[in-house]
């Protein structure tokens, strides 16, 4: 059971990272990742949606006929996203003002329907919850990295406007590297594609290196 959980977490964060390996959810990923704070906001909301949708799909999996599973998943995800939006609008008004424009984008994230199809509809509730959480955190991690990359290159800052998400005390979190306007390309949509390409290349390079050191050490032991 324990090694099973570790496997789920590893898959979500690294081996099957939804953004870097499965390449799912690129629409919100590319659209919103121009600053760290925007990325983090969307990451949190996406993780919440993934957890809730996995929970619902997993607990209802006995009632979902295979022929009609896709419309049912869409129905459940759209319902979850709408409910999250309404609740935030009512009780977290300030947060809603910031994340409001990102919330409907989550419906377009194929990673959520992907996890419902591949994992939640075939597994028990607890592993599904863990899977949603790990996938969400993995997705947020890629988002924040890409957001950081684009923010540094285009405006020379990191954590700008952190107070939108973390309140007034976060106003001085901003780190400024240079004051002149940077590479505008990084802020525009092509910058998102280029940045994502570089991130994927970096991940693959890290994995290759890991593999080669493994084979080297095993050779030594032979």
């Amino acid at each position: 059971m324990r090694s099973e959980s570790v496997k789920i977490i590893n898959n979500g964060l690294w081996h099957n990272n939804q953004a870097l390996v499965a390449l799912l959810g690129l629409c919100p990923l590319l659209a919103v990742s121009n600053t760290v704070i925007n990325s983090l906001g969307l990451g949190i909301a996406t993780t919440l949606t993934l957890v809730l949708s996995n929970l619902l799909v997993s607990s209802l999996r006995r009632f979902i006929l295979p022929e009609i599973r896709l419309p049912l998943f869409v129905l459940i995800i759209a319902g979850v996203v709408t409910i999250i939006e309404l609740i935030m609008h009512a009780w977290f008004y300030d947060l809603y003002k910031i994340l409001g424009i990102f919330i409907p984008l989550i419906v377009t994230n194929c990673a959520i329907i992907g996890r419902a199809e591949v994992f939640a509809s075939k597994n028990k509730i607890l592993p599904s919850l863990l899977d949603g959480l790990a996938m969400g955190i993995g997705f947020s991690f890629a988002l924040v990295l890409l957001g950081g990359f684009r923010e540094v290159l285009s405006s020379g800052t990191l954590f700008a406007q952190a107070d939108l998400l973390f309140g007034h005390s976060a106003k001085n979190w901003q780190i400024t590297f240079f004051d002149d306007s940077g590479i505008l390309l990084a802020m525009l949509p092509p910058g998102a594609f280029i940045g994502l390409g570089l991130l994927i290349a970096l991940k693959n390079a890290l994995e290759l290196k890991q593999k080669s050191t493994k084979t080297n050490t095993s050779k030594v032991y032979e």
């Binding site: 419309p71 129905l75 609740i87």
Partner: peptide
């Protein structure tokens, strides 16, 4: 029948939250 039932439940949930909020 299942699709209808699910739609009914989800719409019910959403409208419940809508009215509550």
């Amino acid at each position: 029948l299942r699709i209808g039932l699910f739609s009914f439940i989800i719409i019910g949930l959403v409208s419940f939250v809508y009215h509550a909020t």
